[in-house]
Design a protein around this nucleic acid. Structure first.
Lengths: 214, 214
DNA sequence: ATAAAATAACTGACTAGTCAGTCATAATTA
DNA sequence: TAATTATGACTGACTAGTCAGTTATTTTAT
């Protein structure tokens, strides 16, 4: 409460307790990510989350009201740091649209696909219909921001004569699609047909940039 | 038993019982698709499947050994008719690679994305890691066949000088990606940002064909 | 034909087990 | 010591899977 009133500049002099509390919160979020990723929402046990975080089950309920809330907080906590980074990509030095697009795509691969955030991506797809809140949050805070960046880059490319103006409905989704599929493939089909993410990335960029070329 | 010995040409004179049995099997598969799609595997209740199929819970277990088996059979039953159709697309009249690719993509949109098979697609992504059997089955019977068709078309395009040879790892996945993402979007984010599948398809084809163009 | 006997299909109450969430008690910190 | 934080045994709601008994269909006997 008081946090909201205080000037946000203070030097965080955390007491031992507050410190431990934060650590435990983090541990629970991490454990939740691990457990939910492993078995999905419904099959995940709060006992397992607790054990994995090194606390008892009761403690989990001192930090989160319910399993649902834990799930949502876990997703939000893992996505929050990304959101500011995406925003920074909007205001970017004046390099060519081609290079900007390449760099933004690289960002996507390194910051999501190659981290365990891709698990969250999968969870959103898997559980999204059962968590409209969450799907909406994810759409509003991650997807539409990512879309805005890509749209801006494409517009720059069109203005500069680098890209053609193909006016398509769902152009952004088509551009990002390759990356999403790579993430899913890694999680579901890699054992049967392994995917080399670096080589895949090159193909993806090549195909898209050629597809957009004026 | 005797069926296996008889010439396979016989006129299927099903007794009333056999007929009802088949109908019920179908009804259960349909109900399973509906229920699993609605809430995912873990949260699905066998009671609900039974009710939706118009039988009692006990009956479900006369047709399927377990919840797992019902799930797998449901996926297989829904995918089987597709598999032969895909195979037919391999042996195709001598039209241009461009037209063939377009037509195969259309096939994908009309036979999967615009039907409730897209629910199955989502379920595979959602539950795949918990059902390695199923992921493997899907990969072997649907994905690799689809890949073979697209690879053949691309090779034709390269040979005819229509497409460039971009040698990419994961080229096929990149080509299909747009379609998969469209399916997922429809199921998860459509309420927040609707997607017009027809317009999206045009963008997808446009982008990919230009990306491949020699 | 018709009834009786045999078989196959179905039912739903029941069991055995699971797990989200609670709360009386214990441990830790200030 | 008092307040806060943590524990884990406990509860109650819920559900996959079972099975003794019922109903519908088919076969056999008259």
């Amino acid at each position: 409460m008081s946090d909201l009133v205080e000037p946000c500049s203070d030097e965080v002099p955390l007491s031992r307790r507050e410190q431990q509390k934060e650590e435990k919160n983090k541990a629970l979020i991490d454990a939740a990510l691990a457990v939910f990723s492993r078995v999905g929402f419904a099959a995940a046990k709060m006992d397992d989350v607790a054990r994995e975080a090194g606390v008892s089950k009761g403690t989990v309920y001192l930090y989160f009201d319910s399993k649902e809330q834990l799930f949502e907080e876990m997703v939000k906590a893992n996505m929050a740091p990304l959101m500011t980074e995406i925003a920074e990509n909007l205001a970017r030095p004046a390099i060519s649209a081609t290079e900007r697009l390449k760099s933004h795509m690289k960002f996507f691969y390194t910051k999501i696909l190659n981290t365990n955030r891709r698990q969250i991506m999968r969870l959103i797809m898997a559980e999204g219909p059962n968590f409209p809140h969450l799907a909406e949050f994810y759409h509003a805070n991650v997807l539409s921001r990512g879309q805005a960046v890509i749209k801006a880059i494409i517009q720059q490319g069109i203005d500069d004569g680098e890209f053609r103006d193909l006016q398509g409905h769902g152009l952004v989704q088509n551009i990002v699609a390759g990356a999403l599929v790579a993430g899913i493939w890694k999680l579901v089909f890699d054992p049967f047909q392994p995917l080399d993410l670096d080589a895949y990335f090159d193909t993806h960029v090549d195909l898209i940039l050629n597809g957009l070329k004026a």
